[in-house]
Design a protein around this nucleic acid. Structure first.
Lengths: 202, 202
DNA sequence: ATATTTATGTATTGATCAATACAAAAACAA
DNA sequence: TTGTTTTTGTATTGATCAATACATAAATAT
């Protein structure tokens, strides 16, 4: 289908990766088209021809972020043997991912557009929906752990999932504020120290 | 000193309160001057005559926020009898403050400009410095608790302060995402359930 | 070869942004 | 009264924003 016409002069995937980095570092609104095109090495008409609009570009960048940066954190949740392992993995993987030298600090999904009534409501809504999805992912994993006998049947899965989700969100702010990897790992330690109390049968 | 000349036709304090509400809801960048002047009931020349600039207005709004909305959360930290009471107060007061029907949800200091490299670096820096100040406030309160015998001398005050500070930051995101008061109070419960483990002598 | 199709670079669009110029209005001082 | 000082409303400034118009370039199709 793309055989006719002048071929694209740049690597679409590489340009998208550069765009993702800009959105991740600067957020949706603060990432100007000039900054994006400079980072992507193209002019704005090429950007619009290849991606449609700034909003559509962000959505592709967000999907790429979820697949790459976020994947290492959330993918193992269902495959790890216990809910405890899954929660611990998320916290420790987050601590490491948020403090990589070659990446922006903190989570793009949390930091890119935190205003409820931002300049682009659909962007904020989509990010919020994804955060909600992550929390539900945790909650479902906890419910499975009840079915499998790991946790007591009266475990408050919603409360525990909300708690650990809150800690993970907070780590984005701490990371942006310059927290070290050791500090974030320590936060994960502290959060996990509540596990036995939270999952003890009442 | 303000006896000469035409008197100001609006209530400066009331206008500042309206500006604070706009910045709180929309963040620094998304709060346009048009939106600010509309909410404050004045025209832009009056705004600039009274406050100097958008940045200066934000700084006054931030100071007002810290004094009013933030005061109920952080002021009691030093006066409460124990460090445990202080931490618990912060978490439960935060859960209540972030879910008031007549206010914006979440913390202005956390949400107003989360981009490390925002459009106005000095605003981001000032907000970050305030968050750091809050964490130090917690850490100092914990150190005092060691001196007073409430906590063992080998308590890791830095780690505990960072942990509870992280939870409090995360509650801002949850609040913006629509978490109920009961959910945030439950997050506080979960966080406090780690207290005994975190403060047990090793 | 010529026609068709798609991408690129330059330049520009209207909208919106934060910030002001300017003159009329409203107070006090003499 | 006549000056002086400060605020107000209207209108506008230059800068920047996201998004395009348009002509040219580079490929395939016939």
């Amino acid at each position: 289908m793309a055989t006719r016409g002048r071929p694209r002069g740049f690597d679409r995937e590489a340009a998208l990766t550069r765009a993702m980095e800009v959105f991740w570092e600067r957020g949706f609104d603060n990432a100007s088209l000039g900054e994006l095109t400079r980072a992507m090495g193209i002019n704005s008409p090429s950007l619009y021809a290849a991606f449609g609009s700034k909003e559509a570009l962000f959505q592709e960048a967000m999907a790429l972020y979820v697949k790459t940066a976020g994947g290492g954190i959330w993918d193992p949740v269902d495959s790890l043997a216990t809910a405890r392992d899954a929660i611990a993995h998320i916290l420790y993987a987050t601590a490491r991912a948020f403090t990589c030298h070659d990446r922006s600090r903190g989570c793009m999904i949390v930091l890119a557009s935190p205003q409820a009534q931002g300049s682009n409501p659909s962007i904020s809504d989509e990010l919020e929906q994804h955060r909600r999805g992550n929390r539900n992912c945790l909650e479902q994993r906890l419910r499975r752990a009840i079915d499998e006998g790991e946790l007591p049947s009266d475990t408050d899965c919603h409360a525990i999932a909300t708690f650990y989700s809150t800690v993970q969100h907070g780590m984005s702010i701490q990371a942006r504020d310059g927290a070290s990897r050791e500090e974030l790992l320590s936060v994960a330690d502290c959060a996990m120290s509540a596990w036995d109390n939270l999952t003890r049968a009442s």
